[in-house]
Design a binder for these strands. Sequence first.
DNA 1: GCGTCCAGGTCTACC
DNA 2: GGTAGACCTGGACGC
Length: 305
Amino acid sequence: MPSFSLSTPPDFHFWPSVVSHGWCDLPPFSCDENTRTLERIHQLSDGAVVRLMLPASEANIGSVSVHVEGIEVLTNAQIEELSRGLRRSLEIDRDLTGFYTLMRQNPRYAWVEQIGAGRLLSAPSVWEDLVKTLFTTNTTWRMTIQMTERMVTLGDPYAGGGYAFPTPQRLAAMTAADLNAHVRAGYRGDYLHLLATRIANGELEVESWRDADLPSDEVYKRVKALKGFGDYAAGSMLKLLGHFDRLATDSVCRAVYKDSINKGVAAADDKEIAAYYQPFGQWRGLVQWMDVMENYLKSDKVSKG
DNA sequence: GCGTCCAGGTCTACC
DNA sequence: GGTAGACCTGGACGC
């Protein structure tokens, strides 16, 4: 089985990055907590569908091994494409120096750097992140998983089981009714079909939204302009696009604010929650997410073993 | 098995 | 700018 490795900086911690939020459980990603392996059914730009396996290993601190199943030999171009996508997905090159300095200054958040949390797993494409974010709106996590599972079966199959994430062109070629009969996304189905269609016909170039030179406000404006993406969804997307100066306040965040931060007293409104995170400046969105994930990331499942 | 209620964000219409 | 009601699915619950 072909394999290659990704070099990583000293402050990169593989497993906390993998389980940084629910994306590792949404196909075509999957993760095995026992073996601490991240897997993904992935379609390369040349059409090949492979299974990527990234095991956690103490032996390769300073790098992450990538095993590629379903192909006999990897070309240099394929390795380059996979490396680029995975480095982005794992945020390997994200500079968190400022974030960790900020966390160090606040005893409540000292655990963040100790665990090595702060990097968020994203999909290799902005398109995939947008779809999954849409599937988190106004629904339960269980339903998000089910919608995503049905959605990926529209992608190209992997010979060993599973599917690659479908392209916007694939979805745009279907009618909105047929698409939603398959995905069962409810009223979100029309938003999904519209998004796929606008990308497929070239009206939207969402992959360029990762451009580091794009101001946060501009990215936020573009995401909010999409049907079905309100304040929460746009705030979530911004984190996946490397901007952390926006909150993504949902029902979970409100519960966390009440239970972990405000001594059991619910916030009067979201402005009160925003005021709490305001001092964290450009990192406030990431700090809010650390609060949401605190108990899980500090558990033995992540921080030990 | 059936009907009702509920949770989850966003959109639209209206004030 | 703020608010009410609709949107859709599926789980929980009562009958």
